[in-house]
């Protein structure tokens, strides 16, 4: 079983009367790319801020690399790269100077990491331009350069592609994929761009109104989202026989609630229905089901929230 890099156990955060996080249990496993999904105000940033040490929890526990004592968690943060909302930089410093401050704060020996991070994020050519003159996209890149400076084992990214142009988003995704694949970097990433998250993440956590609704792997998600015909019948055994022998359908799945999920010939529902009825099977219901990540999320939270 893979080790848990970050764990939250009954994590709760209250701001006066508002509950931002309500007893959240969550686990990010080593080498995962964890897509953290929720609408505005769902609690994503609050959880990331507690993880980064920017905000204090009201109750519950967090663990980082297996450590849960406050002092040890603070120490473990050295091994984590963070981008929390819009990256913060010293406006009167250049990109390299900002990275030098980070290098000193994290106690990273040698200055080669600065050049490497600038190169990896496409900021090698900014020269003496001060951070205050950077575009939003450049600031995002600088934030990523800061996060990558210590060659972290765990990256925590809160809305990291905000402000990036489409090319920047693709580049960003490729950098993260490469880090995950080549160095096994664990990534916790929140984003409103669900299609982008789907291309990147290996598992997902859905948070809504401060509660973590579900954590699933991408395989489980695909399984649940897969397009299929859901046929509810009175006699599943007979229906399976007819599907296999009469309709020559191979890809189907019999569920315990007398429903059969059929994954092929989805456009021939009328024919399937007729053959089942002619074979003496009562078809109680037949619908086409299957979601993309966005639809799945919307169905999960049961509304039209702004994801």
């Amino acid at each position: 079983m893979r080790e848990t890099v970050f764990g939250a156990y009954g994590l709760t955060k209250r701001y006066r009367k508002t509950v931002a996080l309500d007893c959240v249990d969550m686990a990010v496993k080593k080498s995962d790319i964890y897509g953290f999904i929720g609408e505005n105000g769902a609690g994503k940033t609050t959880l990331i801020r507690i993880l980064s040490g920017l905000a204090m929890k009201t109750s519950g526990e967090i663990s980082l690399n297996g450590e849960s004592a406050e002092r040890e968690v603070a120490r473990q943060r050295q091994r984590v790269g963070f981008i929390v909302e819009t990256p913060a930089a010293y406006p009167y410093m250049t990109a390299a100077e900002n990275l030098e401050v980070q290098r000193l704060q994290r106690g990273i020996p040698g200055k080669s990491c600065i050049e490497r991070s600038l190169k990896a994020t496409g900021l090698s050519d900014v020269g003496k331009k001060k951070a205050r003159d950077f575009s939003l996209g450049m600031k995002q890149r600088l934030g990523l350069a800061m996060a990558l400076l210590s060659e972290p084992e765990f990256l925590v990214l809160d809305e990291p592609v905000n402000g990036l142009d489409p090319t920047g988003i693709v580049e960003f995704r490729e950098i993260l994929k490469k880090l995950n694949k080549e160095r096994g970097v664990t990534i916790l990433i929140s984003s409103h761009l669900l299609s982008e998250l789907y291309m990147l993440a290996t598992c997902f956590g859905f948070i809504h109104k401060g509660k973590l609704l579900e954590q699933i792997s991408v395989a489980e998600l695909d399984e649940r989202c897969k397009k299929h015909l859901a046929i509810k019948v009175d006699d599943p055994g007979k229906a399976v026989f007819l599907l296999e022998n009469k309709l020559l359908i191979k890809r189907f799945e019999a569920m315990p609630n007398k429903t059969i999920k059929v994954y092929e010939r989805l456009g021939e529902s009328a024919l399937i229905s007729r053959e089942l009825i002619l074979g003496g099977v009562m078809v109680e219901d037949m619908t086409t089901k299957g979601d993309d990540l966005e639809a799945y999320y919307m169905r999960l939270i049961g509304g039209n929230s702004n994801a």
């Binding site: 980064s52 040490g53 920017l54 943060r77 929390v84 913060a88 980070q102 704060q105 800061m146």
Partner: peptide, 13 residues
């Protein structure tokens, strides 16, 4: 500037 945060998540108490 919110730069104080970087000192905290840089692993310093």
């Amino acid at each position: 500037n919110r730069t104080i945060g970087a000192s905290v998540y840089g692993g310093n108490g």
